[in-house]
């Protein structure tokens, strides 16, 4: 069963206990602001952050654990992997540091240890070690108001839609993460627009790996096709040259 996190922005009080719990659970170091940080609070030492918006709204940012993750599809060695339970995990032993995942992520989530001599990609792994043995992630466990909660994705979607239906005036009628880039395992309910969490012009709907799929599927055809064309071309030219030579030979005696 695919697990997921549902975050209700209207319930978040911005206490940052999730951030703190995440740091403890993953043994992350104290954070130092760096010139290469983005301004959303995420960093190599902060796998989740809380963004403050106007009107005392707090939006938790973390890896969205896409159902069809772009990062996992582009990783040349498969260091990133979408597990059956829903988490997109990272295997630092496989990683070679190409940072293609960071380029490909539509939410701009993965962070890099730019200051380290042996750097790795850093991102939320949905507390894979905990959820695998039936516990819930550190962040949802720490939340004092129940703003962010853990469960089966289908059930959380039901919960989200029930909340919207029960309180249509309170929420924007949309569950963020239900359809974006093919659906994500981290869902949001909100009364403010959450499109700032992704890049501006992301066409909604289709999962990103589909963008490369067509090109990648045509690779064998291009390979064989180019070989065939070249072989054919070579054969034709050789044959023509041979015929030219033979004709020349034939012509020679006639010329004499």
């Amino acid at each position: 069963m695919s697990k997921a996190i549902l975050t209700d922005v209207t319930k978040c009080i911005g206490c940052l206990k999730c951030v703190s719990a995440c740091k403890v659970a993953h043994n992350l170091e104290m954070d130092v602001p760096r010139v290469w940080d983005k301004n959303d609070g995420l960093s190599a030492e902060n796998w989740t952050s809380v963004i403050r918006k106007d009107g005392d709204r707090y939006v938790r940012k973390q890896c969205r654990h896409c159902l069809e993750p772009a990062c996992a599809s582009v990783c040349p060695v498969g260091a990133l992997h979408k597990t059956e339970i829903g988490a997109v995990t990272y295997d630092s032993a496989k990683c070679l540091g190409c940072r293609y995942c960071m380029m490909a992520c539509p939410f701009g989530i993965p962070r890099y240890d730019w200051d380290k001599t042996v750097p790795h990609v850093e991102k939320c792994i949905l507390c894979y070690d905990r959820i695998r043995i039936g516990e819930q992630p550190a962040c949802t466990q720490a939340c004092p108001t129940g703003a962010t909660m853990f469960g089966d994705r289908d059930e959380l979607l039901k919960v989200a839609h029930r909340r919207i239906n029960e309180n249509p005036s309170k929420y924007i009628k949309r569950v963020w993460g239900e359809h974006e880039v093919g659906g994500t395992s981290v869902l949001y309910l909100s009364d403010i627009d959450l499109d700032f969490l992704t890049y501006p012009t992301r066409p909604n709907g289709a999962a990103l790996p589909k963008e490369t799929a067509a090109a990648m599927e045509s690779v064998p055809y291009a390979f064989v096709g180019m070989g065939g064309v070249m072989l054919g071309l070579s054969w034709i030219i050789r044959r023509r040259m041979k015929m030219d030579k033979e004709q020349g030979k034939k012509k020679e005696p006639s010329d004499e």
Partner: peptide
């Protein structure tokens, strides 16, 4: 120079992800 973990560059030989264009380029 660019890779973060250049000593792992040979990993492409043993760990395969055929969906990745970079894998194919490599």
């Amino acid at each position: 120079v660019d890779l973060g973990l250049p000593w792992n560059i040979w990993h492409m030989i043993i760990y395969w992800n055929p969906h990745s264009p970079l894998f194919e380029v490599g």
